[in-house]
């Protein structure tokens, strides 16, 4: 324990991890949904910091860009359009939360116990310099080109799906008109 405390990396870890936990906790318990989104931002940011700690800079910045930059904004738009109760209102939660607590607790206990059992005190040795982006690029194209293409398809599907979902329902007359044009 004291050994662990001496390393500065660990201090940094703690400084980042505790806010992450707190904000994650607030995400799921706050009654204001906009606050929830903002706390998510904090959690995500914290996790980006963790990535940097683990010398995965590219991933960290991708996370900030995509997640915080796009996804969260998307969330905010969604909140606005669905007129989710902005401000404190009737609860965002179910009345009966016990099963969820139990499920969550079970999950946590299981996974943590498993990981502790499996890895014990294994150390991340020699974190070293940040991973060059080139390696990631080469890896994607050389090794994981097929998953890459698949993800591309997913994005395409998402795009088309989003457009379809979002458009107005046309009446048959308008539909004919639109198709003839």
């Amino acid at each position: 324990m004291t050994d662990w405390m001496t390393e500065p990396a660990n201090w940094a870890f703690l400084v980042v991890a505790i806010p992450i936990v707190i904000s994650a906790f607030r995400v799921v318990t706050t009654r204001n949904i906009v606050h929830a989104v903002l706390f998510l931002v904090l959690a995500l940011a914290g996790s980006a910091a963790l990535f940097i700690l683990l010398s995965a800079e590219f991933v960290a910045w991708v996370l900030v860009l995509v997640y915080i930059g796009a996804v969260v904004v998307l969330f905010l738009f969604g909140i606005m359009i669905t007129r989710a109760p902005i401000g404190y209102e009737t609860s965002l939660d179910h009345a009966n939360r016990l099963p969820a607590v139990l499920a969550a607790a079970a999950t946590f206990l299981l996974t943590s116990w498993l990981s502790i059992e499996a890895f014990g005190d294994r150390e991340i040795s020699n974190v070293g310099s940040p991973t060059p982006t080139e390696i990631i690029g080469v890896g994607i194209i050389e090794r994981f080109v097929i998953p890459f293409e698949a993800v591309g398809f997913i994005l395409l599907a998402a795009l088309i799906g989003g457009v379809t979902l979002a458009r107005k329902d046309l009446t048959p007359a308008e539909e004919d008109e639109a198709s003839s044009v």
């Binding site: 099963p99 299981l110 498993l114």
Partner: peptide, 20 residues
Amino acid sequence: VQQYAGAFVIGAVLLVAGFV
């Protein structure tokens, strides 16, 4: 759906625990 999801989670936990 949330209840179904809850069932999934519990089920998964139990399965894994069983395996282990």
